[in-house]
Amino acid sequence: MALKTNVRFPQRGGMPEGDPNNSHDLLTQEELEKRGILLTSLDKLFRWGTGWSLWPLQFGLACCAIEMICTTQSRFDMSRFGYEVFRNSPRQADVMIVAGTITEKMRPAVELLYHQMPEPKWVIAMGSCAISGGPFVDSYSVVAGADKVVPVDVYVPGCPPRPEALIDGMLQLKAKLLHPERQQVVRDVK
């Protein structure tokens, strides 16, 4: 369906001033939005949709998994934000919540699960074990953080984090999806 507007798309050489009374003039996007017309790119639309309905992978490793379940239960109720659709199969999920300690024995499985998820996909490292290995970092069998294995988007600190913290982590991920232009502050980690 064609949009019935009198909008001429900006030509090279700058955008002329728009006049709402003269429909033949060019309008900026903001002015269009004031008149109830939304212009967007498909990519942006998809990001907006995904950001509001992320499907996490149901995949618990340790203590944090219990708090992850609590988050979906009636008291904290993650479905208020649209994130309650936990999928058991990685093929249907787009967020992987690494909830717990990754051990050397479990590492290949975590990697496999990540690769089985379809693009685009994101990872939340929940709890200090998934961030850096936590209290178990100097153990012979523990991987020092999920980011040694898979790329991590959001880190949620705590041991285990409270359910509110996980919800905040999901909202941070949403912000990242909706505003990709915002630059992250990254510190070099050796």
């Binding site: 050397e104 024995k105 590492r107 850096s132 290995g133 970092v137 100097d138 012979y140 069998s141 523990v142 991987v143 020092a144 953080g145 040694k148 294995v149 510190r187 070099d188 980690v189 050796k190």
Partner: peptide, 29 residues
């Protein structure tokens, strides 16, 4: 508990662990 192919006996006092590339503390510089 350990995987097949793991070498050494972890709870012996003389067990020395060689960290893999996925292990070890990290430092902020």
């Amino acid at each position: 508990l350990m995987w097949d192919g793991f070498e050494g006996w972890p709870l012996r006092k003389d067990f020395v662990h060689q960290p893999t590339k996925y292990q070890g503390r990290r430092r902020l510089d």
